[in-house]
């Protein structure tokens, strides 16, 4: 469980995070969605002890992130946005060092490495130097490494950024499997479809504040079911409708080109903040 109360982060006079509060239930997949620079990575960095908080409190499975930091750190695994593997070591060595950092015994490390490399389908590459792996393989290895010490919480910071659609879907499958094993997952992303597909609940973050928090279905229901994208005064505009009939009536009276489609999380974010997630 992750509990965050009034989290603040200030860099000089810039408020990167401003009174952020939320709670992630055990076993839940919680997506943190927002444009670049909204405060997603800052939140993860604070929760994982990489950055000091300026105010507020946060607990990971009941352990305060500052006052009880070493025990709080034992609760989670972390997959960073940037590849942070030791490129000169093999997959096996990267996993083993991680296990040592968490004080795991040699026999247990061996068992977990075999299990996890099998899980992410990299066992056949265990003795390969990391720098020879593809981007997708490196990501899978980072997920496996984060799970090495059997954490109860997994932080994923933009885990599929820069990957092609096929590999992205493969990672999604892996994330779903991890959640089904009972792990609480905190995921930051700016891919709408990623949050839509994976998340139980979504928090929209914008300019360091949580703009809204709900399930993807509730967000979309609130916005409408259908959307029409059209050009108005030289600008793209989206109009939302409760049902198809309402949308069809609008189309009948509209002159010019348009696109009729289902409402998605991007529309919910747009109607709440007036801006797109991908900016």
């Amino acid at each position: 469980m992750i509990r965050v109360e009034g989290l603040k982060k200030t860099y000089r006079h810039v408020h990167a995070l401003d009174e952020v509060s939320f709670c992630v239930k055990p076993g839940e997949l919680f997506a943190y969605l927002g444009p670049n620079g909204a405060g997603k990575t800052t939140t993860i960095r604070i929760l994982t002890g990489l950055t000091r908080l300026s105010g507020g409190n946060a607990w990971l499975n009941g352990f305060h992130i500052e006052r009880d930091s070493l025990r709080a750190k034992r609760q989670f695994g972390l997959v960073m946005q940037s590849i942070n593997l030791d490129q000169e070591l093999t997959l096996l060595e990267n996993m083993d060092i991680h296990g040592r950092l968490y004080g795991m015994k040699k026999a247990l490390r061996r068992i977990r490495i075999r299990e996890l490399l099998g899980y992410v389908d990299l066992m056949s590459r265990k003795d390969t130097i990391v720098k020879r792996l593809s981007g997708g393989m490196k990501r899978r290895l980072m997920v496996a490494r984060a799970l090495m010490h059997s954490p109860k919480i997994l932080f994923l910071d933009e885990p599929t950024v820069g990957l092609d659609p096929g590999i992205r879907r493969r990672i999604w499958g892996l994330i779903k499997q991890i959640q089904h094993s009972g792990t609480t997952i905190f995921l930051t992303t700016h891919y709408i479809e990623e949050a839509e597909f994976l998340a139980d609940r979504v928090a929209f973050i914008d300019k360091g504040k949580i703009a809204a928090l709900d399930t993807p279905a509730a967000f979309m229901a609130r916005t409408g079911k259908w959307a029409i994208d059209l050009m108005q005064d030289g600008q793209m505009k989206s109009v939302y409708f409760k049902d198809r009939k309402e949308a069809d009536t609008f189309v009948a009276n509209h002159r010019g080109s348009y696109t009729l489609r289902r409402v998605n999380l991007e529309d919910a974010f747009l109607s709440l903040t007036g801006k797109k997630v991908k900016n």
């Binding site: 593997l85 030791d86 490129q87 950092l101």
Partner: peptide
């Protein structure tokens, strides 16, 4: 370059 320092920072070591 490799961002490995973050792996140490996030680990439960003093």
């Amino acid at each position: 370059y490799w961002h490995i320092f973050e792996e140490f920072q996030a680990a439960p070591i003093g």
